[in-house]
Computed example of a mutant assay.
Amino acid sequence: MSSRLACDVLVVGGGSGGCVVAGRLATESEARVILVEAGPDYGTRSSGLWPADLLDGGALVTSHEWGYASGQLAGREPIAFQRARVMGGCSA
């Protein structure tokens, strides 16, 4: 059996911006809002579910990245574009 979700607004991307847009729309309008994120949602920080590397504010976290890069560049290595695949995005 499949179920369907209905909404007025679909926000794709649970990074900082997506979360703010979805939250504002949900609280300040009558719109039914769905927020979609490809990465996991570990809940609140106190849930105990967050991986240690995401909790270390001084670490460059690579465990949740998308693997985006610039591709081949003349005379240099490709440039990595660090983007986080997790609820909260790079701000997580």
Score class of each variant (00 low, 15 high):
1 M>Q: 11
3 S>W: 07
6 A>N: 14
7 C>V: 12
10 L>Y: 10
11 V>L: 03
11 V>Q: 02
12 V>M: 07
12 V>G: 02
14 G>F: 05
15 G>V: 09
16 S>L: 13
16 S>M: 05
18 G>M: 13
18 G>Q: 10
19 C>V: 15
19 C>M: 15
20 V>C: 07
21 V>I: 15
23 G>H: 04
24 R>S: 10
25 L>D: 01
26 A>R: 12
28 E>L: 13
28 E>F: 13
28 E>C: 12
29 S>A: 07
29 S>F: 04
30 E>S: 15
30 E>Q: 12
31 A>V: 04
31 A>I: 03
31 A>P: 00
32 R>N: 07
32 R>Y: 08
32 R>M: 08
33 V>M: 08
35 L>V: 03
35 L>E: 02
36 V>A: 13
36 V>D: 01
36 V>S: 06
36 V>L: 15
37 E>V: 07
37 E>P: 00
39 G>D: 13
40 P>D: 15
40 P>E: 15
42 Y>Q: 02
42 Y>T: 09
43 G>A: 04
43 G>I: 03
43 G>P: 02
43 G>N: 04
44 T>S: 08
44 T>I: 00
45 R>K: 10
46 S>H: 09
46 S>Q: 13
46 S>M: 11
47 S>R: 01
47 S>P: 00
47 S>V: 05
49 L>Y: 03
51 P>H: 06
51 P>S: 05
52 A>F: 06
53 D>R: 00
55 L>V: 04
55 L>F: 06
57 G>N: 08
58 G>Q: 11
59 A>N: 02
60 L>E: 15
61 V>F: 01
63 S>R: 00
63 S>V: 08
63 S>I: 10
65 E>S: 06
65 E>G: 01
66 W>H: 11
67 G>D: 09
67 G>K: 00
68 Y>E: 13
68 Y>G: 00
69 A>P: 00
70 S>Q: 03
70 S>H: 05
71 G>N: 05
72 Q>M: 04
72 Q>T: 08
73 L>V: 12
73 L>Q: 12
74 A>N: 07
74 A>R: 04
76 R>L: 07
77 E>A: 15
78 P>W: 09
79 I>D: 02
79 I>V: 15
79 I>T: 14
79 I>R: 03
81 F>I: 13
85 R>T: 03
86 V>C: 06
87 M>P: 00
87 M>K: 01
88 G>D: 07
88 G>M: 09
88 G>W: 03
89 G>L: 04
89 G>M: 05
89 G>N: 03
90 C>T: 15
91 S>N: 12
91 S>I: 01
92 A>K: 00
92 A>V: 09
